[in-house]
Design a protein around this nucleic acid. Structure first.
Lengths: 199, 199
DNA sequence: GGACTAATGTAAACGATGTTCACTTTTTTT
DNA sequence: AAAAAAAGTGAACATCGTTTACATTAGTCC
């Protein structure tokens, strides 16, 4: 797989650390992500990480940025598929958002943890704006929008509600004893209610 | 103010620690809340806290519970005032939710930080259910609800959207360079959109 | 009113974490 | 081939949450 001849120089530590964050977060939760654990997983001394990231926060910001991109991708995939099936793209995009949160909670939580992110980071902001664009693209045919640069109240409602539902699910505030399927069903119902409120 | 005669026994350390959490969180943010800092602020040794809370998490859970109660109160106040003024109670309750988040971000964030809370704590769950009840009470005249025990899709939409908007504001994802007034205005607009989607 | 007990505090220590610093090893440049 | 830059190491530090053994106070019972 990877040439482990020269063990001193790693090759692409920056990337490997991100993979390590992924692994640990997925397996043991975001709280278990520690610099030392990542370093150990990669097989490198803790201080090595600082050659590539100024901070733990910087590493997590990079990870969050990547997570945002994944979500954007999932949403545009869903939209594309909906157009193919000639089903409702608005529904599809909204549902994709909630589904992503349910299926990859570590990623979803990571991308919105302001307290452990540099939310002013250029790449992070760009990814967030990109996500917003994908969101609005999904709304395009459903919500009439005069000014495509700003967010209309309807768009804000749509985004807020899927975001909020995802959060409520993940926090366990809502649907604590629902199965995954039931949660998705509830999400679908909410999105239908949302739909009728928007057009 | 407080009799500082006997410095050994504090009197009501459990309560004082909660006040300390409040002070530090409000002044320096939730991340600055550390057991040692709280203890120092109260004037007590770090280990003393463990006589009253099994954990840092337990302390934060108690704080979150209190925050939930405050939010419940703010919402029922808003509802009451709206009824007095014969303005729209649904709008009032929703706006109160977002306003609380904007005005007391530390509290709002504290109550939803699953990662640092015992979300299965009895009191915490009770407070969360109570909040939900206040929410639904605010919706009562607006959203027709067959089964008052469960949450209808419309109610879920309402809750999700105000919760989501609050989060988006606090995270800085939306309205990063809006003033407080502008944010409230946007919230109002969103709630109006929500309203027309629900009845 | 004193003795016993429970409650509540302290001080010192531990392991884990993020981070820094002086140093070494490899890679790149010239 | 030499010099400079890049990427890694290991030891150390401060801080944090937490535990342990001990000290002090408050409450209760005879």
């Amino acid at each position: 797989m990877r040439k482990t001849k020269n063990t001193y120089h790693h090759g692409d530590l920056a990337e490997s650390l991100l993979v390590a964050v992924d692994e640990i977060a997925t397996k043991f939760g975001l709280e278990a992500v520690t610099l030392r654990a990542c370093a150990k997983l990669v097989g490198v001394s803790p201080s090595a990480a600082f050659r590539h990231y100024s901070d733990k926060k910087a590493l997590l910001t990079a990870f969050a940025t990547r997570a945002l991109d994944q979500l954007s991708l999932a949403m545009s995939d869903a939209q594309y598929a909906a157009v193919e099936n000639s089903s409702n793209p608005f529904h599809a995009v909204c549902l994709a958002y909630v589904k992503f949160a349910l299926e990859k909670p570590a990623f979803f939580r990571a991308m919105w943890r302001e307290e452990s992110l540099y939310t002013s980071d250029k790449n992070y902001i760009a990814a967030a704006l990109n996500l917003q664009a994908h969101m609005q693209a999904g709304f395009a045919d459903t919500i009439e929008d005069k000014d495509p640069d700003s967010i209309s109240p309807q768009e804000l409602l749509a985004w807020s509600s899927v975001h909020g539902l995802a959060k409520l699910f993940i926090e366990g505030t809502v649907g604590r004893d629902n199965t995954m399927e039931e949660k998705i069903e509830r999400a679908r119902d909410m999105i239908i209610a949302l739909d009728s409120a928007i057009k």
